[in-house]
Design a protein around this nucleic acid. Structure first.
Length: 325
DNA sequence: AAGACGAAAGTGGTTGA
DNA sequence: TCAACAACTTTCGTCTT
């Protein structure tokens, strides 16, 4: 894993692609776009993916908001995943300057200029970040609610200056992680790493920092929340899902879950539930889908069946299933 | 040959002095 | 800042079917 490269790219040298397209050569998801030659080039291996692209950028330039408004031929749709929901505050309107005392005009103009610069720099930052977010959302199949919430929190983070010294990608990734968890549909760090190309330790670090600064409560993730996604990923029935959650509830009461990695516990519960419902999957299959090792599943599995006193039941069931095949 | 099991050594992160 | 520590992973050998 060339981690260094990703870091450099996150400095903004690279245009990130808004859709879920990946390089057919190396599977990487970021590309350089060269508008002059109309080429799209994989940022990792350099493969030219697209030639003779259409340049969608504006053919005109605008030097201030006024020109922008005048030259634009279409307005952006209103949505809260856009940085300002289409409403921007400005200090200076050309007519108003006449109302200001002559001796204050110079100062007034300076203020106007800086105000514009600030807004525009925030603009660029936000629109770039939001397109990265858009990419993650479609890649991970996240809900509208999560999308909106992350957008809101990101702006908050920018306002508090928390993005400084961190790459936008890592902040976005961290927020996605945080919000997914908050909404009870957690994704693992690994999944977000794969989707965003940001190292998972980096995501974790940023997550903790941002969460503290924005007063997002960091509750330990609960295993139940992972169950529905795991069962669907493995193609298991709703019955298995319900059974797994039932097992986890009981486990929680007996205090077996605390201190353990939630994904491991969830994986073991799914394994048990699958066996009990006669839809047995191998430990490896589950391990692979969930992103923990078989060993971990085994350990949790052993703990669960012992402490819940269902060891015999499970063994009987396994024998039964073996006889059938 | 494939799956389950577990021992042993290694890794990254947290905690407490 | 450092060492101890728990959870988890990797690796590998064994047993069963």
């Amino acid at each position: 894993m060339p981690k260094k490269k990703v870091k450099e790219e996150s400095r903004g040298v690279v245009t990130s692609q808004a859709t879920g397209v990946v390089c057919p050569e190396c599977g990487y998801h970021r590309f350089f776009e060269d508008p002059v030659r109309g080429e799209k080039i994989c940022a990792r291996c350099g493969l030219v993916l697209d030639e003779a692209m259409v340049d969608f950028s504006q053919e005109w330039r605008a030097f201030d908001e006024e020109q922008k408004l005048r030259r634009a031929r279409a307005g952006a749709p209103l949505t809260s995943t856009k940085h300002d929901k289409g409403l921007t505050t400005e200090i200076g309107k050309s007519g108003e300057i006449l109302k200001v005392a002559p001796e204050k005009r110079a100062q007034y103009q300076r203020l106007t200029k800086w105000q514009k610069r600030l807004i525009e720099s925030k603009d660029r930052n936000l629109s770039f970040a939001l397109s990265e977010l858009q990419r993650l959302v479609s890649y991970l199949g996240l809900s509208r609610a999560v999308h909106e919430e992350v957008a809101k929190k990101y702006e908050e983070a920018v306002d508090k200056g928390l993005v400084r010294g961190r790459s936008m990608e890592s902040v976005i990734a961290a927020l996605v992680y945080a919000v997914c968890r908050e909404m009870g549909t957690p994704r693992t760090l690994e999944e977000i790493e794969k989707a965003s190309g940001v190292d998972k330790r980096e995501i974790g670090r940023t997550y903790r920092y941002i969460a503290r600064q924005l007063n997002i409560k960091i509750l330990p993730a609960s295993p139940e929340d992972y169950v529905p996604r795991f069962t669907t990923m493995l193609g298991l029935s709703d019955k298995v899902q319900a059974r797994a959650i039932q097992i986890l509830k009981k486990a929680k009461k007996n205090d077996i879950t605390s201190g353990k990695g939630p994904t491991g516990v969830a994986a073991a519960a799914v394994y048990i539930a699958a066996v009990l419902e006669g839809e047995k999957k191998t430990q490896r299959e589950i391990a692979e889908a969930v992103g923990v090792t078989e060993v971990t599943i085994r350990n949790r599995f052993k703990e669960l069946i012992e402490k819940l006193g269902i060891a015999e039941e499970i063994e009987k069931k396994i024998k039964e299933l073996e006889e059938k095949s």
